[in-house]
Amino acid sequence: MSAEETTSGSTRIPREKIAVGPTLRDLALVSVLGLALQLLATDISALAAAGGMAGLYVICAAGIVLTRFAPFYLPSIAWISLLGIVATLPFTPWGSAVTSLVADIDFLALSVPALAYAGLALTEREIDVVKKSGWKLLLIAVFVLASTYIGSAVVADIVLRITG
């Protein structure tokens, strides 16, 4: 695994400094925010929504602990995604229980608080970048989306022709 090499020289906070306690506290806070939004966004009962958010909390908390203490480094989101997959594998004894616990949680509503924090976190530096090269980035964005589509179509087309 070349994760350590490829990340050398990055600006990441050393993981020894990940404060597990405060992070878990803040995670609890955003989970409560998330719960409120689930009640607005979905028709599920308060109990089901609380159960679902609690399930997600446990997955995230375990991911944070692994980020801090596992023998090799993976970003917290990679751990959390991996744990989410493992927790819902259908052939495991726990898979179907976890799946039904979190199944009704609304995807889109979960992303709303993160974007609200993001808008509040902006400073002059980021605003300057957008002012200076915003239109360029807009064009790049359209190009990124279009070229991803064409690139994938080309590779799929070639592989389909080879494999029949």
Partner: peptide, 22 residues
């Protein structure tokens, strides 16, 4: 607000993992 962004995205990523497992 800055360190809160990544924490706030965590439940989303967890939910997203749970749609892949099944």
């Amino acid at each position: 607000a800055s360190p809160m962004i990544v924490i706030a995205i965590m439940p989303f990523i967890a939910k997203f993992g749970t749609t892949i497992g099944p």
